Amino acid sequence: MTAHLAAVPGSFLNAECAFFNVGELCLSLGMSVHDTDRLSTIIPQRLKIKKGAVLYRAGDPLRSLYAVRSGYFKTTITSRDGRERLIGFPMSGELLGCDAISNDRHECDAMALEDSEVCPIHFSQLERLARELPSLQRNLNRALSLEIVRDHEMLLMMGQLNAEERMAAFLLDLSCRMANRGYSGTAFVLRMSREDIGGYLGMRLETICRAIDSLRSQGIVSVSGRAVEILDLERLRTLITGGEGPMTL
Results as ranks from 00 to 15, higher is better:
129 L>G: 04
232 D>R: 08
159 G>H: 11
199 G>V: 10
179 A>R: 13
188 F>N: 03
87 I>K: 01
201 L>M: 05
247 M>A: 10
226 R>L: 09
168 A>Q: 05
109 D>I: 02
94 E>M: 07
212 I>N: 05
133 L>K: 02
142 R>D: 15
7 A>H: 11
194 R>N: 14
215 L>Q: 07
203 M>F: 06
106 H>Y: 10
136 L>V: 09
152 H>Y: 07
126 L>S: 05
144 L>P: 00
219 G>S: 03
159 G>N: 14
238 T>V: 02
110 A>L: 08
101 I>M: 11
128 R>V: 08
161 L>N: 06
62 L>C: 07
73 F>I: 04
6 A>W: 04
212 I>L: 14
233 L>Y: 13
39 L>D: 08
136 L>W: 05
82 G>F: 01
32 S>P: 01
78 T>G: 03
203 M>P: 02
201 L>A: 00
198 G>P: 04
117 E>S: 03
15 A>T: 05
180 N>Q: 05
165 E>G: 10
213 D>T: 00
219 G>T: 09
48 K>P: 00
168 A>P: 12
34 H>C: 00
161 L>H: 05
152 H>L: 13
92 S>C: 05
27 L>G: 07
112 A>I: 08
184 S>A: 12
53 A>P: 01
78 T>F: 12
1 M>C: 06
101 I>K: 01
154 M>Q: 12
156 L>G: 11
162 N>Q: 09
130 A>N: 04
208 I>C: 08
33 V>Q: 09
62 L>D: 02
63 R>A: 02
20 F>H: 12
11 S>C: 07
88 G>Q: 03
57 R>P: 03
237 R>S: 08
91 M>E: 10
154 M>Y: 12
49 I>K: 06
25 L>A: 14
218 Q>T: 05
57 R>E: 15
235 R>N: 13
49 I>W: 02
100 A>P: 05
175 S>L: 10
95 L>R: 02
240 I>Y: 00
106 H>N: 05
134 P>V: 04
175 S>Y: 04
57 R>Y: 09
93 G>K: 02
191 R>G: 09
46 R>G: 05
87 I>G: 00
25 L>F: 15
238 T>R: 11
17 C>S: 13
192 M>S: 11
15 A>G: 01
11 S>T: 15
178 M>D: 10
226 R>E: 09
237 R>D: 09
29 L>Q: 15
105 R>Q: 04
248 T>E: 15
244 E>C: 05
17 C>Y: 07
98 C>E: 15
198 G>F: 04
152 H>E: 13
110 A>V: 11
139 N>P: 10
226 R>I: 00
45 Q>S: 13
23 G>V: 09
33 V>S: 10
77 I>G: 14
196 D>F: 11
24 E>F: 07
